[in-house]
Design a binder for these strands. Structure first.
Length: 195
DNA sequence: TGCCCGATTAACT
DNA sequence: GTTAATCGGGCAA
């Protein structure tokens, strides 16, 4: 039986943590799956919510690592982040997609879809499937309802530009599990091709 | 106070 | 490929 990742796991470079989360398991009240896609947001990064300083919404990012940052996206969806780096760095990893492994029935009911591939393939979708809301804002990641387990073995990781942002679009801070069919969008396989 | 816009999704054409 | 839904944060005035 794997042991939960300790809170100190998150007290390192946000990009290092992001890459190591690929293949790890995320459960909320026992419902969830294997993390197959994440994005890193650093406080010096214009695309990050913390870039312009501390506000009520992003305050948890400025506190110690190992806590959940949850925000409302487009007034419609919730998105889940893990706060990383030493306290005050205001960096976080956005969880973008899971391969469902636990609580499939609950997730289907919450999402209103039966297609397993569509349950958790997107930041808003996985929050709906796992029941993540503002109630989870600021909760520690090493205690219930969260359960985050390390990946059991090394995995092949791919990286590329982040999705849905308009600033710092060139930074390759999106990480994914190579070949996974549960990604929210495919990674470019042959990046070098000229047109 | 008012205005613009976003780390998205689903349902269109 | 395009667009409506939907609303709080952030900033200008």
């Amino acid at each position: 039986m794997l042991k939960r990742l300790p809170r100190v796991f998150f007290s390192r470079s946000v990009n290092q943590v992001a890459a190591e989360l690929i293949g790890a398991t995320l459960l909320v009240d026992g419902v969830g799956g294997r993390i197959v896609e994440v994005e890193a947001y650093h406080h010096t990064d214009p695309a990050a919510h913390s870039f312009r300083g501390r506000t009520v919404r992003n305050a948890v990012m400025f506190g110690p690592p190992g806590y959940a940052y949850v925000y409302r996206s487009y007034g419609v969806h919730w998105c889940l982040n893990f706060v990383c780096e030493p306290e005050g760095s205001a960096s976080a990893v956005l969880i973008r997609a899971l391969e469902p492994t636990a609580g499939l029935g609950v997730m289907r009911r919450r999402r209103g879809v039966s297609n397993e591939r569509l349950l958790c393939s997107g930041p808003g979708r996985l929050c709906e499937a796992l029941g993540v809301t503002a109630a989870h804002y600021g909760l520690p990641l090493d205690r219930p309802p969260f359960e985050i387990l390390p990946r059991p073995a090394a995995v092949d990781i791919v990286a590329g530009p982040r999705i849905g942002i308009t600033k710092a679009v060139d930074k390759p801070w999106r990480y994914g599990l190579k070949g996974s069919r549960f990604l929210s969008k495919p990674f470019t396989v042959s990046p070098g091709r000229d047109h």
